[in-house]
């Protein structure tokens, strides 16, 4: 079973995404801040990371940076608001983010992107 790490401070979104990905057979670990996210990258060895940009303690960009240092092959999907600064999105891609899903999003679309990235 593949491990997905979800770093999202909105518990409702987090529960919804976990529910949807569980249906596809993924083991989803959820954390609600950036520091816990970094700890989880070390401890749970995820096959894919989904992270919000605006999260407490460490932001999504720092998570991408850290993850790429620890394990550069783990794909990362950035979940963020539509109004996010373009520079932030560009920085995320430059650091190695694999995909960007703007909010509001369709969980089914997200599930397809997860499947595609993990299979690749």
């Amino acid at each position: 079973m593949k491990n997905v790490l979800l770093i999202e401070d909105d518990k409702l979104i987090s529960s919804l995404v976990r529910f949807r990905l569980n249906k596809d057979g993924y083991n989803v670990t959820t954390v609600d801040d950036g520091q816990k996210g970094m700890d989880a990258i070390d401890s749970s060895s995820p096959d894919l990371i989904i992270t919000d940009v605006m999260i407490p303690f460490k932001n999504g960009i720092e998570i991408i940076n850290y993850s790429k240092k620890v394990n550069p092959n783990v794909p990362i999907i950035v979940l963020s608001s539509l109004g996010e600064e373009e520079s932030t999105v560009m920085e995320a891609f430059n650091l190695g983010a694999s995909d960007f899903v703007p909010k509001p999003f369709n969980p089914n679309e997200l599930a397809i992107r997860v499947q595609r990235l993990i299979n690749n």
Binding site: D10, I13, L16, K103, F105, N106
Partner: peptide
């Protein structure tokens, strides 16, 4: 909250 963050059929 979901309505703000979801799109499509949801």
């Amino acid at each position: 909250s979901l309505n703000k963050n979801m799109k499509g059929d949801f």
